[in-house]
Computed example of a mutant assay.
Amino acid sequence: MPELTTTAAHEGRLNRPAGIRSLWLGDTKVSYVPDGDVRLRPRPLLPDTTDEVWAAHPEYLDGTGHLVASVGGLLVEHGGRALLIDAGFGPQTFRTPDGPLGVIHGGALPGSLAGLGLAPEDIEAVAFTHLHSDHIGWAVHPVPGEDRPLFPRAEYLIAAPEWDRLDLLAAEGTTERVAALAPRVRTFDDGQEIFPGVRVRITPGHTVGHAEYVITGGGRRLIAFGDAVHSPIQIDHPEWSAAFDHDLARTAEHRRRLVAELAEPDTIGFGVHFADVVFGRVRQDGTGPAWQPVDA
């Protein structure tokens, strides 16, 4: 794996959403599948930060002062089979006048899949890290102009503790739409292998049944950690929890352990919201930002 200087690794990438990016783990291909992006208000998102923090780190912000984040999913291909982890925001746009969320839009995921040579019917299962609207979009929204789901043959894999608390989705107004997925839902428990080389671990904090996925192959492992971390800046400051977290203290405690684990040899992280640095590894050598992008 090539060595990167901290300047070269991050140049221009922290304030633009990611495009399609792929890595190989032995015989398993993992690809970021873009659906759109979200612009976040940094102080409301990370309440423990200060104006001084963001003044010192303008590289994370766009021209309007918003934190730039990606929205999409992770495609896992192995042996002619395909699993999608998370389903983006779907064909919609949403904006708010205050709070952490500025504007979020989706819609690009079908085209992104096509760019990777796959059709929606090639996806045998969609596994969710959690049931927030920016992760379930294309599962609960039909194809625009048509009364049919995007993924015609996929089952939906959801952590049992997450599925058991659909009532917590009331604030997002998505409870009924998610409940309607029930005929195609298969729940899983901690530690299950849901696809060749893909094992789940349930990590409550961001939500009550938040799940991470550990993908192994070729002597490496990739940890798709969902919304345990929203921005690379939290890798340097795992104590900074996000306003969207269900349990801020529990998430911070988990994030500290996760950062240490991501620093272990042959370990790569996948941050679905990590601007144009969705794949990376952690270096804690004091030479600069701990999150170092990995592109091969």
Rank of each mutant, 00 (worst) to 15 (best):
65 G>W: 09
182 A>N: 02
104 I>T: 08
167 D>K: 09
95 R>T: 14
232 P>N: 03
161 P>K: 04
83 L>H: 00
22 S>R: 02
149 P>D: 05
96 T>C: 11
251 T>K: 07
223 I>A: 08
189 D>H: 13
11 E>C: 11
76 V>I: 15
69 A>G: 14
185 V>K: 05
11 E>M: 07
124 E>T: 14
231 S>M: 08
107 G>W: 07
138 W>V: 07
282 V>L: 03
218 G>T: 02
208 V>N: 02
278 V>H: 00
19 G>D: 10
151 F>W: 07
80 G>N: 07
11 E>S: 11
153 R>D: 09
209 G>K: 00
121 E>D: 12
220 R>A: 12
98 D>K: 13
188 F>Y: 13
233 I>V: 15
252 A>F: 10
286 G>S: 04
258 L>A: 04
41 R>H: 12
223 I>P: 02
3 E>F: 09
114 A>I: 05
201 R>G: 06
80 G>I: 07
22 S>D: 01
256 R>N: 03
252 A>L: 08
183 P>V: 00
1 M>S: 11
283 R>A: 12
63 G>C: 11
109 L>R: 13
171 A>N: 04
289 P>G: 05
23 L>E: 00
232 P>R: 01
66 H>N: 14
294 V>S: 00
262 L>R: 00
180 A>Q: 04
14 L>N: 00
289 P>N: 13
213 Y>I: 02
154 A>V: 07
155 E>H: 11
220 R>Q: 13
119 A>E: 15
190 D>L: 11
7 T>I: 11
210 H>D: 08
177 R>D: 15
140 V>I: 15
59 E>W: 14
6 T>N: 15
51 D>P: 11
11 E>I: 05
146 E>S: 11
99 G>D: 00
57 H>Y: 14
219 G>Q: 01
60 Y>K: 05
25 L>I: 08
197 G>A: 04
217 G>D: 01
109 L>K: 06
1 M>P: 06
47 P>L: 01
296 A>K: 10
79 G>D: 09
226 G>Q: 04
72 G>Q: 02
25 L>G: 03
71 V>L: 12
193 E>D: 04
221 R>G: 06
281 R>V: 09
67 L>D: 04
137 G>Q: 05
296 A>Y: 12
258 L>G: 01
251 T>W: 02
168 L>G: 01
144 P>N: 06
115 G>Q: 02
83 L>A: 03
261 E>C: 11
69 A>F: 01
230 H>T: 08
264 E>W: 02
283 R>Q: 11
187 T>F: 06
226 G>I: 06
156 Y>M: 10
235 I>S: 03
181 L>D: 05
54 W>T: 10
82 A>G: 06
220 R>L: 11
116 L>T: 03
5 T>D: 09
133 S>Y: 07
114 A>W: 05
92 Q>V: 12
146 E>L: 15
285 D>R: 02
145 G>V: 06
176 E>A: 15
166 L>W: 06
32 Y>F: 15
258 L>V: 07
147 D>L: 15
168 L>R: 10
15 N>P: 06
276 D>M: 10
134 D>Q: 08
23 L>K: 00
